[in-house]
Design a protein around this nucleic acid. Structure first.
Lengths: 152, 152
DNA sequence: AGTCCATCGTTACATATGCAACAAATTTTT
DNA sequence: AAAAATTTGTTGCATATGTAACGATGGACT
């Protein structure tokens, strides 16, 4: 495919960092999504919600939104689905009855630990492919990018 | 917020590379999306389609799919919208009438060059924040990650 | 030529998503 | 204490997306 654009100063999409980040992120996420789709028929919001509850043990929907940057309707619907599966239980806060505390059931914990294990293997493979120097630089770069955007 | 998960071996979501990449990618993309939404009311698939046609000058829908990794229905709909705006014109291939060649109109080129300029400034800011070493390492890492996923 | 299969791009349908409005509970203001 | 404003989580609705099917065209094979 010939590139015959007149203007040499334009930025090729494949050199544009926003695009490159999205490409890599999407590939990695879709690869990992195969695991939770195949095993449990879960969606990405469901996996992230499960992972966040599993990580914190006891958490509210609002806190899941803050920690995972997911939209509150996504979180609300993911919680509903996980509850239907009996993977989490809700407890209404006694001091503020708007708030519900979420915890995984034993089944939910089992799925979380299994997927967490897959995630760790996945992570190890990527880090092995990058090597220690690039791994460190990647983490530093992602932090720097997020900080830049947040503080702009 | 206390982290009182029982199992210390689990992978915190904010250390999981698939999640980190998505976070950074989404933040950067949404920031840049403000520009084309504000100026032209464009969507992300529309911007990417415009950028790909602008970059190659003359291209088919299928080639846009291959180069941008967008689903063909996304590309089809983006082409339709860009055509409605009179930002691109189609020419049916004389040797194979299933194929349409796409080119930007003058209006389309104008928008492309303007957004391309914004993109370059955006890129420069990110690279300035990262520094040369991390910039190089980031690009290497993204390449390595994509290659790893593709060859697995 | 005629049949079968592959390819390019579009569209119908079902699902996923975000925005805005909402109910219920709580907090702040007067 | 009453009224107003805020917060938590849910839901109605419109939009965005992917899958599968499709029409049109072209190529391969007989």
């Amino acid at each position: 495919m010939d590139q015959n654009n007149v203007n040499e100063a334009v930025l090729p999409l494949e050199k544009f960092i926003a695009y490159r980040l999205n490409q890599a992120a999407e590939k990695v996420s879709q690869k990992f999504a195969l695991e939770y789709k195949k095993r449990y028929g879960m969606t990405r919001p469901e996996w992230r919600t499960l992972a966040t509850i599993g990580q914190f043990g006891n958490i509210t929907a609002k806190q899941i939104c803050q920690h995972s940057s997911m939209h509150k309707t996504k979180v609300s619907r993911a919680i509903f689905t996980l509850e239907q599966r009996r993977w989490l239980k809700r407890t209404v806060d006694q001091n503020d009855r708007r708030v519900e505390h979420l915890e995984l059931t034993l089944q939910g914990q089992k799925a979380y630990l299994e997927l967490s294990d897959v995630a760790r293997n996945f992570q190890d493979q990527i880090y092995a492919a990058l090597g220690p120097a690039n791994t460190a630089a990647l983490e530093t770069s992602l932090d720097a990018i997020e900080t830049l955007i947040d503080t702009q």
